[in-house]
Design a protein around this nucleic acid. Structure first.
Lengths: 352, 352
DNA sequence: CGAAATTTGATAGACGTCTATCAAGACCCG
DNA sequence: CGGGTCTTGATAGACGTCTATCAAATTTCG
């Protein structure tokens, strides 16, 4: 129960070969007879040999150099994600993983592409990026892959491209989840839903809406979709007008960003007036506060903590040319005011 | 950008001391003047030195031997947890962490205590266990601590004891979350809730109920609490009787186990008959199926995957006498049929 | 001042794996 | 059977840290 785990020398001895031969087998180097290889494999299984990663990493001086490209700007979600990556970076220093977190102008495929071109020249072992739905982005990914640099898309995918993996939620699932919650909140009654997105041309926003529609079916009316460009002033204005215009609205689903404007609008309502149910995405300071104060009802979060962890996991595995585990999408998480995570507030404060 | 991370030799050189002295500083060994220590610290910060854990682990031949004690039996939740620990164990072999997963008879504090006494004699670096609310368990924990073996309680806490940490959800929070969902599902209307627990004397079940009550306040009636002993036949019978007896019930909250019985009962209902909203705990095969088939509405899950990861994290840190990170409780997660995790089914199948 | 105590330096060996090199042995084919 | 190719063995050095030892230098204190 307490004995030393077997080393490769033990394996070699057991297999009746030299250390060199055993090493050739485990590292897939050429020049080993089939028989010897079989013996070594058998010895590995007999002894339950597992390669000591500490020793392996040490001897190889393995360094993992990853670049993470995030959209810049005031978007609370990406600020949170950036803080999480920064925190991960300092934690991962001890494991010889260096994360270089970069910002590019949001919604600017040109800027993203030129950044990617630059990264393709850098000595990197992997890149994660928030893809924009654009041919140039796909070309940038291809350029990185051509240099043998693995690429992971994050939050927003680009399915046709050569990216190795996607880390993020399935937006249709997120929309369906909101649909179900809307149904629940209406307790069997019908209602009229006001959808707000950044732009209908944004694939993720459109997918969320269509997921919601799938679940609501014909039992609910859907008001004309507002496109707020993810800008809070615009969201505030448009939603304000729509609500004034259409008193039948029983629920608002904001599938995009710019929710600070929505929250401002809700704060301006008389405190005890009936208001529509409000569902929105991403747990950030202002949405958290709104939920705590009862101005909104549900936040759908894509758990950036989990996404950050998984990006690092994927990039490390890809850099070692190993198989990915856990390629299923991130599950959108439902936050009500009752199950808000506790540490969240502190972590955000600490991040400034 | 691509240079070799600094080693302790670099630090020593920079600080103008020998490697030996630098080593004494970083490992907190005695026999270093204050001045030398300050110089070394400064050099560490200047260079951004981070101890290479691979090298450190290698040189120390550090082995982490942890024991995990779970209640035996057919309980789907603990079966899932056991599978997750087994999976973690094989993954962690490469990191020289050995998890020895043990079962003891459920609800048998005597059996748990004698197991703990045995473990106190074993060469272990940490123990995780599902505490039962019992003095003997507290004594067992004390015995382990007396042998310098860190102890983490899992799923069920024992606050008065000497355990180093608790990994699990806050059951009041879970109950409050359900309370909010019940409110939502009633869409502003009143209702009558049937609570089902294993036993009112079980602290976690009682806490869940009181959390729910907090949120429902006086707007809802609460039917007499059923105690199903976490046994599915008993739950099936009791709930069946209660529903027949009390047609006013609009929601069922099952805060304990034995939900297979509840699901059977619901399956027996005529398919298109109105049924109460049903809320229960833990995503396991039968509850998952019930949710997929629309026989229940919500599953509150305590994310055993996350708990397993955190147990390992805590035990490792404790074994190294380091400070714990992330001591906030696990956040109860809400699953609707729309946001069920995908991989779950496969993972459970694979675990057999 | 001198003896004792404390601090420092130098260094060696170990941890397990990886990489590389060189020589020797086994095998094949003409 | 001789020359070539393939396979194997032996071994050395490196990775960065930890532990230990011994001697030398410095400080403390009676």
């Amino acid at each position: 129960m307490n004995r030393r785990p077997p080393t490769l020398s033990d394996v070699a001895r057991r297999a009746g070969v030299s250390y060199a031969t055993a090493d050739r087998v485990v590292n897939g180097r050429a020049g080993v007879s089939e028989k010897a290889a079989r013996n070594v494999q058998a010895a590995i299984e007999d002894l339950g040999y597992v390669r000591n990663v500490a020793a392996a990493n040490l001897s190889q001086q393995r360094l993992y150099r990853f670049a993470i490209v995030l959209p810049a700007g005031s978007n609370g979600f990406f600020q949170r994600m950036q803080a999480l990556f920064a925190e991960a970076a300092s934690r991962l220093l001890a494991d010889r993983v260096s994360l270089q977190v970069e910002s590019v102008e949001a919604f600017d495929p040109e800027a993203l592409t030129s950044r990617m071109t630059a990264l393709a020249e850098a000595p990197l072992d992997g890149v994660a990026l928030v893809a924009s739905d654009d041919e140039r982005t796909a070309a940038g990914i291809a350029a990185l892959r051509a240099r043998e640099i693995p690429v992971v898309t994050l939050v927003s995918d680009l399915p046709g491209s050569q990216r190795n993996a996607y880390v993020g939620i399935d937006n249709v699932v997120a929309g369906r989840t909101v649909g179900r919650l809307i149904r629940m909140a209406h307790g069997g009654r019908r209602g009229r839903v006001l959808p707000v997105v950044g732009a209908l041309s944004a694939r993720d926003h459109a997918e969320r809406l269509s997921g919601m529609r799938e679940v609501l079916g014909d039992d609910f009316e859907i008001a004309p979709v507002l496109e707020g460009r993810d800008r809070h002033e615009m969201v505030e204005t448009l939603v304000g007008l729509a609500l004034a215009d259409d008193p039948e609205i029983t629920a608002i689903y904001s599938a995009g960003a710019g929710n600070a404007g929505l929250v401002r609008l809700l704060e301006a309502l008389p405190p005890d007036a009936a208001r529509p149910y409000v569902f929105l995405h991403e747990l950030v300071p202002h949405s958290r506060r709104a939920l705590e104060e009862g101005r909104i009802d549900v936040i759908i979060d894509q758990r950036p903590e989990e996404e950050v962890a998984r990006v690092v996991e994927h990039l490390t595995l890809l850099a070692d040319r190993r198989a990915l585990v856990r390629t299923d999408p991130i599950v959108p998480t439902i936050f009500l005011r009752e199950n808000l995570p506790q540490a969240q507030a502190d972590a955000l404060e600490a991040a400034g």
